[in-house]
């Protein structure tokens, strides 16, 4: 068996390499915050939120990836938090379906300066409370912390803030 190449931080200067068009650099960008074209999907949703550090300040230099797979759709998107005045990330996607074994979810990966290893979390949906109650991954999370993984719904928007530390610290999953 080989040993894995260790992770290092994405650093503060990733934008022109990983999200160049979003930040106005002259290099093409393969992925952005539109996992689908909202014009083509009547059922499109928005997932939006912010990242808060241990001082409760918003993080302006994070990169967020959404990995969405529900057996039917395999979607991927990427956005930086540095171009929105409030450091929000905003994704356009469709709501995932349940795969039959649990509640619908998307996986979020967070990269930023100050993280030597990226963070994995999951976004579940407030309006799926019945399925959320029996989701096998959520059941592995202490009950008092499950709410940190559930996006709040307002209209077609889901709000999901990420707290690195503090009383509402988001649940992150160990890489395995």
């Amino acid at each position: 068996m080989k040993l894995p190449t260790p992770s290092q931080t994405v650093g503060p200067f990733f934008a022109y390499g990983l999200t160049p068009q979003q930040y106005g650099y002259d290099f093409s960008q393969w992925y952005n915050n539109k996992l689908i074209d909202p014009q083509q999907h009547d059922d499109s949703i928005i997932i939006t939120g912010r990242v808060f550090d241990g001082n409760h300040d918003t993080v302006p230099d994070a990169m967020i990836e959404l990995w969405q797979r529900d057996g039917e759709c395999n979607l991927f998107g990427r956005v930086g938090t540095g171009t929105d005045p409030d450091h929000r990330f905003i994704f356009h996607t469709i709501k995932p379906r349940t795969d039959g074994t649990g509640a619908p979810f998307v996986t979020l990966i967070l990269f930023m300066r100050g993280q030597l290893l990226h963070s994995y979390t999951r976004i579940y949906f407030e309006d799926e409370s019945d399925l959320n109650k029996s989701d096998p991954v959520l059941l592995n999370v202490p009950e008092s912390r499950r709410e940190t993984l559930v996006a709040r719904k307002q209209g077609s928007k889901y709000f999901f803030d990420i707290y690195m530390q503090g009383p509402n610290e988001t649940v992150f999953f160990e890489i395995c």
Binding site: R113, G114, S119, N140, F172, F173, C176
Partner: peptide, 17 residues
């Protein structure tokens, strides 16, 4: 920069996730 940006609580291990 890790001081304010690293999670404080243990990560959750879910085999197969």
């Amino acid at each position: 920069s890790t001081v304010l940006r690293a999670p404080h609580r243990p990560l959750i291990l879910v085999p197969g996730i």
